[in-house]
Design a protein around this nucleic acid. Structure first.
Lengths: 201, 201, 201, 201
DNA sequence: CATGAATGAGACTTCATTCAT
DNA sequence: CATGAATGAAGTCTCATTCAT
């Protein structure tokens, strides 16, 4: 009933409910009626704000990736050391996951799933996200701090995969005992220093 | 009409078609009729071999994980050095992906998706797979070859995530230029030696 | 804001928009929102002037038939010769069609369609219209100018059907090259003199 | 259960039910479920034989126009006199209407209605039908039996309109007392000889 | 009077599954 | 064992109508 944004208020509620329900049941398992009920609106109301169920999912991506980029922007702002930047990147990602576990599930799982049935949606934001990570690595390589033999895009992809897998594990609840912050720290160590003991070298 | 396995022959064909169609269209996008057509059988025939569409997906997991375990068994048979074992593990996984890209897509994407709608299917084989990887790492830690600060299950999970992400990238065709074998090699370097240049240490 | 008819002004605009949109999209294809937009009013406003979408259609009939009767009244006023009256009747009808093609489509097509779903609306005005035509013919028969073997109501109905079909053809745009005035003249000849050459008689 | 045509049997039943229900309630008023119930099949079964509700209507047109053409073929076979041919044409049309009143309603009403929402369906069969009628008239004009001042396509259209209007009247039940055969005869007289008494000439 | 966001009943259509042949 | 026509539950989406502002 906020006179300033009666519309966007409802839009947001629907978006949040969609996120929650998609995360719980998956895109296909989630019925529009479920989302409507959770948002406390009529089924038809959803279609006042989103053209279709598909578009609702896409909007979710957009919103979440927006947040991710903002968070990264903030986190990386004052850091110039590549190693530091990489750890901050991971920290920011982990923080986002923790703040919004539903979003993590939706983004990582449904995003992939969705490529199958939403051929037209190429998801440029995610590509941007990966590019950003690769840039940090590339930067470190330029500065002679990171090994140049490893192609930055591949390292970026691998790092994301590792990070995401841990995040998903945590989100799924099965890694309940997992302290995600610590895990991210370990992952940082692993990625930066490697698994092999120093004495080996 | 093979007298030795007339039944399992058809069962196998259905399974292979399901794998192909699931990979192409995703679990929900794939219609039972599509699979039947691809397998060259009637729709109803599928239900002589599988209780439901869900069970067909589960069977696929089982079969694939079976293969994975066999392949790993063979690959790791004569290796005792932890570092070597880890690299072999990755090599075997990559080989499987390359031999059967469809399976990779189904396992990695649909597996996750499926957890949402198949609560009862806990997927013990996959857990077993991860445990195996963790065991290698733990072994290396026991031998003093791998750093003990990093918990083996987490390293295993991260390693799998990284490997899987690269595999998925390759499978999706977008990483076309990607040489998966080389990428796995780089990932091995990354995981074992770390990203940071030695001179830093 | 016209102080004389602020209400009926808006009512009229809605009616005109409805006519236009019904003609373009058909009764079912036309959405109340379309009509509202065309009329420059809010959706809900329509319901201040019309009880329902159905009633809007009915009102259209009423208004149009009113006009038809007025026009006929004027046209037939000073004519007493049956043949002349018949031709005037046709001329007036054609003129109305030309002045308001939308109305023609709505009346002829939707009128028929509507009988299906508006059982309660018996459309007395249209019956009146036909009666009027029949009266002219009957009159001619009484005066010995028209052949008595042909029952007036049937001739009236046939004449209307022929006229209406030509009108519809013209309205639909497919009979673009058709000069409706001329066509009406020909129809008059046909109806009055017949198709067969005089030498035959 | 006829072993020879289990499929077409059901297809036909659906078609007949659709005809009946469309005639009773109109295309939009008729629900697919109504048709299914009338045909004694499940809702989904309809979609085994027709791609959509729209296509069901189109199929009806095709089937009916097919019959019309066949009937005309038969009726006009041995007649060469233009006047005779015209009367036979009308007789055949009337007979079809009487044999299948539902079809008449669907064809004449829904056909027109449908042009609005089925832009892609131009209905070539109906154009063919009118061309056929025009050909008879043109033929008579060539033979000097019909007046040449009246353009054949317009006469054809007018004749059809008149005939159709009478048919519709009869079908609607309101012209119950109307003997359609007689009416067609009168219409023939009207069209051929005209309304005006001979003594006038 | 006017608005237009919200409602929710109901329509079309899909598709996993069944079962008579 | 195999078939594939048939089923019918269930889902997405539309849109006439309402009502608080």
């Amino acid at each position: 009933m906020n006179p300033h944004s009666p519309k966007s208020d409802k839009r947001l509620r629907i978006l949040e409910s969609a996120e929650k329900v998609f995360a719980q049941k998956g895109f296909f398992g989630a019925k529009v009626a479920d989302i409507a009920e959770d948002a406390g609106v009529a089924d038809g109301t959803i279609y006042l704000y989103f053209r279709s169920k598909d578009e609702l999912l896409i909007s979710l991506f957009e919103v979440q990736m927006e947040r991710v980029h903002e968070e990264l922007e903030r986190e990386l702002a004052g850091a110039s050391d590549p190693e530091d930047r990489l750890r901050r990147f991971m920290r920011a990602y982990v923080r986002l996951i923790q703040q919004n576990p539903h979003a993590a599930e939706v983004i990582t799982i449904e995003l992939r799933q969705s490529e199958k049935f939403m051929k037209q949606y190429s998801n440029p934001r995610f590509a941007e996200f990966l590019k950003r990570l690769a840039a940090i690595i590339d930067d470190g390589q330029q500065q002679g701090r990171f090994r140049k033999e490893l192609p930055a895009p591949i390292v970026a992809r691998a790092l994301f995969g590792a990070l995401d897998e841990l995040a998903l594990w945590w989100v799924s609840g099965r890694g309940e005992k997992l302290d995600l912050d610590k895990a991210a720290g370990w992952l940082g160590d692993l990625m930066l220093q490697g698994l092999v003991t120093k004495s080996d070298r």
